[in-house]
Simulated scan of single mutants.
Amino acid sequence: MIKSVIIINTSGKIRLLNCYENQIPLNIQQELVMKVYRAIAKRGDDLCNFVDGFTDWPTPDTRIIYRRYATLCFVFVVDSSESQLAILDLIQVFVETLDRTFENVCELDLIFHSDKVQHALMEMVMGGMVAETSRDEVIRSLAEMNKLGSGKAGSASPISSSGYHR
C-alpha cells in the first residue's frame, strides 16, 4: 500500500502532501515529511532511490522511494507489498503527466495549479492503491476535466428556461 505521496523542493518546502493513512494527524504528517526530507537530502546522487526500514514512520514496514528532478523531489512512502521498481516507474509516469500537462513542469506550476496536480495524482492513486499507470489515460482524463471546468463539454445539450431539452 502507498502510505503517502510527497513532493518537496531542495529546501525542504512541501509542495504536495497526500497521506493515505487516516490515523496520522496533520501536524504529525508535517513532522514526518521533515524526517523523510532529512533521510533523503543527505543521500548522494550515486546512491539508489530506495530507503528501506524507515523507522520514523508511525506504522511499521515502511520504505521510501524517491526520485529527484531539478529542484523537486518526488517521494512515495510505501510498505513492503509494493514493488520498488514499479513505484519508481509510477513516479516517472506522474512526472511525465505533469510535464505534458504544464509543458515543462516547474515548481511554480505545482504551487499555482495544485488542483490539477492533485487531480493527476488522484487519477493514478486512490486510497493508497495504484489505480492507473497509463500516462495517456491520465492526460485524457485531465483534458476531459478541463473541458468540463471551462464549460466546453461537447456532449451537453442545451436546456431551455423551462427546464426541458430543446
Rank of each mutant, 00 (worst) to 15 (best):
M1C: 09
K3D: 01
V5C: 15
R15T: 01
N18C: 09
C19I: 01
C19R: 01
E21R: 03
P25T: 01
P25C: 01
Q30V: 08
L32G: 00
Y37K: 02
G44T: 05
G44A: 07
G44Y: 02
D45M: 15
D46A: 15
G53C: 07
G53H: 03
W57C: 00
P60H: 01
D61N: 11
Y66P: 04
T71P: 03
C73H: 05
C73Q: 07
V75M: 02
F76D: 00
D79A: 07
D79I: 04
S80A: 10
A86N: 12
I87G: 02
L88P: 03
D89I: 09
D99G: 09
R100N: 14
V105S: 07
E107R: 04
D109K: 08
L110G: 01
I111R: 03
F112V: 07
D115S: 15
A120K: 03
L121N: 09
M124G: 04
V125Q: 05
V125F: 07
M126T: 11
M129D: 09
M129G: 07
R135W: 03
D136N: 13
D136T: 12
D136I: 09
V138S: 07
R140Q: 12
S141P: 02
M145I: 10
N146C: 11
L148S: 15
S150G: 09
K152D: 12
G154C: 12
G154H: 10
G154T: 11
S157P: 04
P158R: 14
G163C: 08
H165A: 14
R166Q: 10
R166K: 10
R166W: 15
R166A: 14
